[in-house]
C-alpha cells in the first residue's frame, strides 16, 4: 500500500501537508493525522468538502451527482470525502486555514432543555452543555455534529443561535420520516436526554469584510444559519443590508416568524420575503419557491449582491444558476446544502 503526500493550499494561501494511502479518502486520511477538514456527511452527499485537484491521480468513490455535476468533475473539482489518491496530490481548498481544526476531536455532553414542534415537520431542539464547560464558540453559520446515543452515527445540524457563554445550542430539525436522528427524537428523546456533541465546524459563514448587499436564501430549516447570522448582527449592532427569502412548501411549515419580526425591528436594513410554494388561496405573500422569488428580485433590482444559500440541493443549484445568469460571479455565492 502506497503513501501519498497530500498538499492542500487554502483560500488564504496557507499550505498543509499530510499522508494518505490508496484506500483512504482525503478527509479520513487527514482525520488520522488529527486534522479535521471541513466536511459534513462524509458520504459524498452534501458537497461541503468540495475542492479542486491541481495535480495528481485519484479515483472518486460514489457520490451524489447533484453535489458534483459532470462539468465540475471534468474541471477536476473533487469531493474530498470521496477522493482516493493514487499519487501525491496538490489540492486547492475554497476555505481559509482557520476553518481547519487540529487535534483530536473530543465530544462534549449536552442535555436537551427544549424539544418542541414549531411547525409542520420542524422541531426546535435546544441542548445545554454542562456547568463545567459552558463556552459555545462558533462562527454564525457553522454546524455541530450530534451523536445518536448508543450508536456511532453522527448527524450535522446548523446552529440557529449565536456563540454564547451559557452553554446553549439551538437547532432547527427537519423531521424526516425515515431519518435516524428525527426518529430518535420522536420516539426516545425527552427533556434531560444527553447527547455527545462535537466542536462546531463548517465554512458557511457571513463574510463581514465584504460590502455588497446580501441576499439570504433559506429553504425550510436552512433558515437556521441565517437566524444565527442575523441575530449576531443584531447583537453586535451591525445593521447590514440583507434581504432574506425564506421558503417552505405550504403555510403550515412556516416557523420562527416572531423571531424574524423581532430581528427586523432591530435591523432596519433587513427585508424578509416569505415564499410559499403551494399556498392556500388566502396567502398574501409570495407564491412560489425562493428560487422564483430570487429570479424576480434580481430582474427588478439589478445590483452586485453577495448571495448566501442554505437548503436542499435542488434549491441551491437553481439559485446558483439564476444568480449567474444575472452576472453574479462564483466568488459572490456562498452555499451549504443538506437533505
Amino acid at each position: 500500500m502506497s503513501n501519498h503526500l497530500i498538499t492542500l493550499t487554502t483560500r488564504d494561501g496557507q499550505v498543509l501537508t499530510f499522508d494518505a494511502q490508496d484506500s483512504q479518502d482525503v478527509v479520513s486520511a487527514a482525520a488520522i493525522c488529527n486534522i479535521t477538514l471541513p466536511s459534513l456527511c462524509r458520504d459524498g452527499g452534501c458537497g461541503a468538502c468540495l475542492a479542486h485537484c491541481e495535480s495528481g491521480e485519484y479515483t472518486l468513490g460514489n457520490y451524489n451527482e447533484s453535489m458534483l455535476p459532470s462539468e465540475l468533475k471534468a474541471q477536476r473539482q473533487v469531493l474530498l470525502c470521496r477522493t482516493f489518491p493514487h499519487s501525491n496530490l496538490q489540492l486547492n481548498a475554497p476555505y481559509d486555514y482557520a476553518h481547519i481544526q487540529f487535534g483530536e476531536q473530543v465530544g462534549k455532553t449536552a442535555t436537551i432543555t427544549q424539544l418542541e414542534k414549531i411547525a409542520n415537520r420542524t422541531l426546535k431542539l435546544q441542548l445545554k452543555l454542562g456547568d463545567d464547560d459552558k463556552a459555545v464558540e462558533f462562527e454564525a453559520g457553522q454546524y455541530v455534529e450530534i451523536e445518536i446515543p448508543q450508536t456511532n452515527i453522527r448527524r450535522a445540524y446548523s446552529l440557529a443561535n449565536t456563540a454564547n457563554w451559557q452553554g446553549e445550542l439551538d437547532f432547527l430539525i427537519r423531521v424526516q420520516p425515515q431519518g435516524q436522528f428525527t426518529t430518535f427524537l420522536n420516539e426516545k428523546a425527552a427533556l434531560g436526554q444527553t447527547f455527545t456533541v462535537y466542536v462546531p465546524k463548517g465554512t458557511f459563514e457571513f463574510h463581514s469584510q465584504r460590502f455588497n448587499p446580501a441576499i439570504f436564501i433559506a429553504g425550510g430549516t436552512g433558515l437556521a444559519p441565517f437566524l444565527s447570522m442575523l441575530t449576531k448582527m443584531a447583537q453586535w449592532g451591525e445593521n447590514r443590508e440583507v434581504h432574506l427569502f425564506f421558503g417552505v412548501n405550504d403555510e403550515t411549515e412556516l416557523f420562527c416568524l416572531e423571531e424574524l419580526a423581532k430581528l427586523q425591528q432591530q435591523l432596519s436594513n433587513l427585508k424578509i420575503t416569505q415564499c410559499v410554494w403551494k399556498p392556500r388561496d388566502t396567502w398574501q405573500g409570495f407564491s412560489g419557491t425562493p428560487a422564483q422569488a430570487l429570479q424576480k428580485y434580481l430582474q427588478e433590482n439589478p445590483n452586485d449582491y453577495d448571495i448566501y444559500l442554505c437548503g436542499p440541493p435542488m434549491l441551491v443549484n437553481s439559485c446558483v444558476e439564476i444568480a449567474k445568469t444575472h452576472g453574479i460571479s462564483d466568488t459572490q455565492i456562498f452555499s451549504e446544502k443538506f437533505g
Binding site: A135, W165, S208, Q209
Partner: peptide, 23 residues
C-alpha cells in the same frame, strides 16, 4: 477587527460572561 466582538459604552459584560464560562 471584522468578526470580533466590539465592546460599546464601557459595558464589559460580554467579556465577563466569557471569562466565567472559560476554564
Amino acid at each position: 477587527w471584522a468578526g470580533i466582538r466590539h465592546i460599546q459604552n464601557n459595558d464589559f459584560s460580554p467579556v465577563i460572561e466569557a471569562a466565567q464560562a472559560l476554564h
